[in-house]
């Protein structure tokens, strides 16, 4: 449904997106996971035709958005990261305006507006000005804008940023429903749990580059199916590096004063064998936390850093 080939975009000397390539298959929920500033929004902006790439190209359902912008955009529904609503208009005004841009008119437009408002639980507030909405309500209305014209492809750029858990659950539920109805979804996020719960395939992006891509199972396998162990204590970085390097069956990802992150290699000695060595290393440990294989461990393995919210 989407083919991204060697996409590149610079802002001055900053390379925001660097040779990014991936494909999104029809009907799947594809996740683009990465920390803030990784290049997710720039990639989305190039896919939806707002930003012209410096290199590479994007095909949406076989069409090039820069050659047939109106035709390709009709197939797209975009939910931007920022709240793109006119606050002095009502929820219905906003949606009717947006629908009319896609050629919806009259009774059909009104029924679509009613449908999407009902879907996100905002029917009661249809005639209220957006100015009085909470952050979560605005996010839900923002989502409606992308769904109104029933697009074949839905691009969602961090649609759950800064909202309460209930609104977040509602948004994720709506996205699942839309995908179940056959809409292809490209979903960017820096929340690992969202990517894990929602996406069939995930691309991890950092510093403008795709680091890896695959299903959740494939990615965790890539991580070595080993647990991630975090240590904290009163040790200094040099001493900890020295001690940890002498323990077999572990891979050290990051060490700083008082903190260390390592993973237990799959197929090796196993966590139960490694733990006594760690505890006996006289590092003055205060805390040891163990995390099962996850996207977090994949990200750590790939970047040596944690993906923070």
């Amino acid at each position: 449904m989407i083919t991204v080939q060697h996409l590149r975009r610079c802002f001055g000397t900053l390379v925001a997106v660097d040779d990014v390539s991936f494909e999104v298959r029809e009907g799947e929920i594809f996740g683009l996971l990465g920390p803030n500033g990784a290049g997710k929004t720039t990639t989305i902006n190039m896919i939806c035709g707002v930003l012209r790439p410096d290199g590479g190209r994007v095909l949406v359902d076989g069409g090039d958005i820069w050659l047939d912008p109106v035709g390709v955009k009709r197939k797209l529904g975009v939910v931007p990261q920022e709240i793109a609503l006119y606050e002095d208009l009502t929820a219905r005004d906003n949606l009717e305006f947006w629908g009319s841009l896609y050629g919806l008119v009259g009774a059909e437009l009104r029924s679509r507006v009613d449908e999407v408002l009902s879907r996100v639980g905002l029917s009661e507030r249809a005639r209220d000005r957006v100015k009085g909405f909470s952050g979560g309500m605005k996010r839900r209305l923002n989502l409606c804008m992308g769904l109104l014209h029933r697009p074949r492809l839905l691009l969602l750029d961090e649609p759950t940023v800064g909202i309460d858990p209930q609104a977040r659950l509602n948004i994720l539920e709506v996205i699942r429903e839309v995908a179940a109805a056959g809409t292809t979804v490209l979903y960017t996020t820096h929340y690992m749990d969202e990517a894990e719960q929602l996406c069939q395939r995930i691309a991890i992006i950092d510093h403008g580059k795709i680091l890896t891509l695959g299903s959740l199972e494939e990615l965790t396998r890539l991580a070595g199916e080993g647990e991630v162990v975090r240590l904290s204590g009163s040790f200094d970085a040099n001493r900890a590096s020295d001690c940890l390097s002498r323990i077999d069956g572990i891979t050290v990802h990051a060490v700083s004063d008082g903190r260390a992150v390592l993973s237990v290699a799959a197929g090796g000695r196993g966590l139960t064998a490694v733990l006594p060595d760690l505890l006996g290393a006289e590092l003055g440990l205060d805390d040891v936390s163990i995390q099962p294989p996850s996207l977090q461990s994949v990200f750590i393995r790939l970047t040596g850093r944690e993906l923070r919210d």
Binding site: N45, C48, G49, V50, P69, V70, G71, K73, R74, L76, V78, P80, Q81, E82, I83, A84, L85, Y86, W98, L101, Y102, M145, L155
Partner: peptide, 14 residues
């Protein structure tokens, strides 16, 4: 400044 224009141009509007 608010991103409304950016969003608007994702619609079939030149």
């Amino acid at each position: 400044e608010s991103g409304l224009l950016r969003h608007l141009l994702t619609a079939p509007v030149t």
